[in-house]
């Protein structure tokens, strides 16, 4: 049995180590900008962080940085939720039902390696330059990752568990609902983690093409106006929100899958 009481101490140590590594990185960055030629092409973290806070009250374009983040998040969430739902359903069906696998897997395997941003030109042709084309690109990013993980989760179900359930009298439906679905939850969460990251990366690319709000737009607008600090503000926003989303996903997983976390 593991010592549960030590877990809290471990968390504080992790947070402390993370804080130290970030502080050292920022210090090196600031010193490099102040005392080397890096300062010619890059602004320091003090200026970027300062500008980040200023942009929370002074708009970039029409919106403050929080509003730009919310715009991007709304696009990510729309595409991510659609991609996740469809990906989980398709992945599980392909993993459990052979005819579904035979029917959909070849098509999926052809679509999977195509980078989502390669679809941008076609998505504009199909959906126009508004929101639906962005949702579509993000949907593809989430869908690819989650489908593969849900499929792998079903394939990784312990056959002895299935055998044990059948011995205890479980029919096919009961084996599916009581063994297969719960077994693949950790794989699905791993897929959701990957998908949320790739969705967030993709929204930035999608907003760089055509948008008037969002963090991708902030970055590309900074490039157009030759404002390194605005580009960095956009990049910092992407980093912070991406990190927050990953933490949120891990928190949800820890709550919903306590059994997969406790005792480790």
């Amino acid at each position: 049995m593991t010592g549960r009481s030590l877990k809290g101490v471990g968390s504080y140590r992790k947070i402390g180590a993370a804080a130290i590594s970030i502080a050292v990185f920022l210090l090196i960055w600031q010193l490099a900008v102040m005392f080397t030629d890096v300062g010619i092409v890059m602004v320091g973290p003090v200026e970027v962080i300062g500008r980040f806070f200023v942009s929370m009250v002074e708009p970039i374009g029409h919106d403050t940085i929080q509003m730009h983040i919310l715009w991007s998040l709304s696009r990510v969430m729309t595409g991510f939720i659609l991609g996740s739902v469809l990906g989980i359903v398709l992945g599980i069906l392909m993993g459990w039902f052979r005819p579904m696998n035979a029917l959909f897997r070849p098509l999926y395997e052809i679509i999977r390696p195509i980078p989502p941003i390669a679809w941008i030109p076609l998505s504009i042709v199909w959906f126009g330059i508004g929101e639906p084309s962005k949702y579509f690109i993000i949907f593809l990013a989430a869908f690819s990752a989650i489908t593969m993980n849900a499929f792998a989760g079903v394939k990784a179900v312990d056959p002895e568990l299935i055998g044990a359930a059948r011995m205890l009298g479980a029919n096919n439906r009961q084996v599916f609902t009581t063994i297969v679905l719960p077994s693949c939850v950790p794989h699905i969460f791993a897929g959701l983690q990957i998908a949320i990251g790739s969705s967030w990366a993709t929204v930035v690319a999608a907003e760089m093409v055509r948008a008037s709000q969002g963090v991708g737009w902030v970055i590309i607008r900074g490039q157009d106006s030759n404002s390194t600090v605005q580009i960095m503000v956009g990049i910092v926003a992407v980093g912070i929100v991406g990190f927050a989303l990953a933490v949120l996903m891990r928190w949800i997983e820890a709550r919903l899958c306590a059994w997969n976390v406790r005792g480790k």
């Binding site: 002895e160 568990l161 055998g163 044990a164 011995m167 009581t178 719960p182 939850v185 059994w259």
Partner: peptide, 16 residues
């Protein structure tokens, strides 16, 4: 009414 105990400890990890 048959029960089968396998070589591995086939517990359902998501159940108490």
């Amino acid at each position: 009414n048959i029960a089968y105990i396998f070589q591995e400890y086939s517990t359902m990890s998501w159940l108490t």
